[in-house]
Amino acid sequence: MKKNHSYGCGSSDKCPPLPKCDTAKSHTHFCDVGTPENTGGVEQTIILGDVPIQTLTEADIYLPSYATEIKQIRKNVYLTQCKAVPVIPEGFPETAPTSVKLYVEGYIHKNIQYVDDCEGYVKDYGVNVPFKCYSLVNTLPEIDWEFSNKNSNSNEIRELAKNGMGADRCSFGSFTFEFLNEPIKCKLLNASVTQMDILSDFDKWGRFDKITEKAEVNLLVRLTQRQLANGGGDQ
């Protein structure tokens, strides 16, 4: 029976561990350690670039009750996704990637304060307005990136059968490898929002409960990657 790790649809944004599998019996042997490489090098965080991003969004916001006037709207910008995927150039791996496909998603959290009459209490309503932007980013410094090959069919090892008429189905092997690339990380440095709010759905007393927002969202996102700098240097 498989164990329930409490990772259901939409239950967590974290990458869960693999399900626990059976463990095969193995024979442990001594290992052979080779000569260390990259001695004297320094691993440091490289700034690939501060990327300006602009996206447009339009949303219909429905207030929980009718209003006669908006007093103020407070806004904060949050990112829910920022993923940079290197674009593999011609001549790879001799030519390193210098471009990425950037996937950015987030939302504007709006705190709307309004009144429903000429006097009375100020009401408060919070709502999130999503936005997204997918784009190509060029002219970055060289990105450290390698492919892996984990499919045993690509570099398969086969031996001749005893009768010399084909492959031995009971003896086979493969050569696989995987490179663990340093991820490209994102950091939101600043954000600005320019918006127009259009009121509609008025009742006979001149009150409204619908706001159509047209917003321009400007972001400045920093892309970084841990890389090896030979010859030492500042960390």
Rank of each mutant, 00 (worst) to 15 (best):
P97V: 03
V51D: 01
G49Y: 09
T98A: 07
P89N: 09
N128F: 10
L102I: 04
G126C: 12
L63V: 07
V77P: 00
E69M: 13
S148N: 08
G120V: 06
S154G: 00
L79Y: 07
N76W: 10
Y78P: 00
Y78N: 06
L79D: 03
P52S: 01
E146C: 07
G120L: 06
Y107W: 11
W145K: 03
G91T: 03
L48Q: 02
D144G: 10
N151L: 09
E156H: 07
T45F: 04
L63Y: 12
I108F: 04
K150Y: 09
S152I: 13
I46Y: 05
V85M: 05
K71Y: 11
Q81F: 11
T39H: 02
N76P: 02
F92K: 01
E43H: 13
K123G: 01
L136H: 02
I46R: 03
K71C: 08
Y78D: 06
L48E: 03
E156F: 06
I143C: 01
V77A: 07
A59L: 05
T139Y: 12
V77F: 10
E58F: 02
I53C: 07
D144C: 11
L63M: 10
G106P: 03
P64S: 06
Y103V: 00
G120A: 05
K132M: 10
V137S: 01
P64I: 05
I46M: 05
S135E: 14
Y66L: 14
I73R: 09
T39W: 02
E37N: 06
I112N: 08
V87G: 01
P93S: 08
D116K: 15
T57G: 07
V77H: 04
V87Q: 07
G106I: 06
K83C: 08
I61S: 04
C82A: 15
Q54H: 13
N138A: 11
N38Y: 14
I108C: 06
